[in-house]
Amino acid sequence: MIRKNRLNKIYLIIFFLLSVGLITFFILRALEKNIDLYLTPSEVKAADFNQFDDFKLGGMVKVGSLQKLEGLEISFIVTDFQSEMTVIYEGVLPNLFKENSGVVATGSLNPEQNQFIATEILAKHDENYMPVKIEVQN
């Protein structure tokens, strides 16, 4: 009896580990399809960007760069103090969005005009829901 029990237990553990491993493998594969890279303007320019996948552009909104275009369209410049990139967005901006504060724009690159077409704009905020100032390193 005892020996049978122990054997059962070993089978159980092996089965458990195998299924967890298998599930993890499939989950990770699904994960990789849904990754949004988070890049700064310098990283975008350094990379050879001929891909049109969506990614997240992060940095600071440059002072004085916010322009209201036609309709709901706006444009502003995202900077990481080394490179800059113009972002075009059509829609309502979040409350915490402002110049000289952190921003995360989701969208894709328009290589011909060197612009980033955003579909979603998020203002970065800290635990107190205040806009985040990104610290300059160097």
Partner: peptide
């Protein structure tokens, strides 16, 4: 050192 996020679609 790669920053990324996982979309809600996942």
């Amino acid at each position: 050192g790669q920053k990324l996020s996982i979309g809600p679609n996942y």
